[in-house]
């Protein structure tokens, strides 16, 4: 029971950050969405220990563990687009599918390549240092 109350209280804290973020977005009329601003704000607060991690940990873990649930109402909205079943919809879906595959392959492969290169360079440097030390 205590655990449930703790989770609810911590979700409320997350709501406050969401609200503050949205207010900042509207106030400065930014194109960066309010919830993202709220997230960055919370991240900064955690890093500087303004908000101790214990204060949001259980609530955040709970929300993230049931992430998929929050998308169901949004995705059910597909039912309002029966034209997706026509030829035009088919072309649209093809464009999305092909683009998704391209994006995933290109971003994953490129990043992996550069990450490995960086690691290798660091390893080489570490090697040089250790060999020079042994001399």
């Amino acid at each position: 029971m205590m655990k449930v109350l703790l989770v609810i209280l911590q979700v409320c804290i997350l709501y406050i950050f969401s609200f503050v973020g949205i207010s900042i977005q509207h106030f400065f009329s930014l194109t960066i969405p309010g919830n993202i601003i709220g997230m960055l704000l919370l991240f900064v607060c955690l890093c500087f220990n303004i908000v101790p991690v214990k204060m949001i940990e259980s609530g955040a873990q709970f929300l993230l563990s049931i992430l998929m649930l929050f998308f169901i109402p949004a995705t059910v909205g597909v039912m309002d687009y029966p034209e997706l079943l026509s030829v035009h919809g088919l072309l649209l879906i093809i464009a999305i599918l092909v683009s998704t595959m391209i994006t995933m392959a290109v971003s994953g492969k490129t990043t992996q390549y550069f990450a490995k290169k960086t690691q290798k360079r660091e390893a080489d440097q570490a090697c040089e240092t250790s060999s020079s030390q042994s001399l």
């Binding site: 979700v11 997350l14 709501y15 950050f17 969401s18 973020g21 949205i22 919830n35 993202i36 709220g38 997230m39 960055l40 919370l42 991240f43 955690l46 890093c47 991690v53 949001i56 940990e57 609530g59 955040a60 873990q61 929300l63 993230l64 992430l67 649930l69 929050f70 998308f71 169901i72 109402p73 949004a74 059910v76 909205g77 039912m79 309002d80």
Partner: peptide, 28 residues
Amino acid sequence: SYEKYMIGGQVITSLLGPTVVALAYPLY
């Protein structure tokens, strides 16, 4: 209809806000 369903559905969708904020936790 979807519109009618969303009277209740939007309550669940509204949790997307704090969930996006909660992403700061794994980040941290």
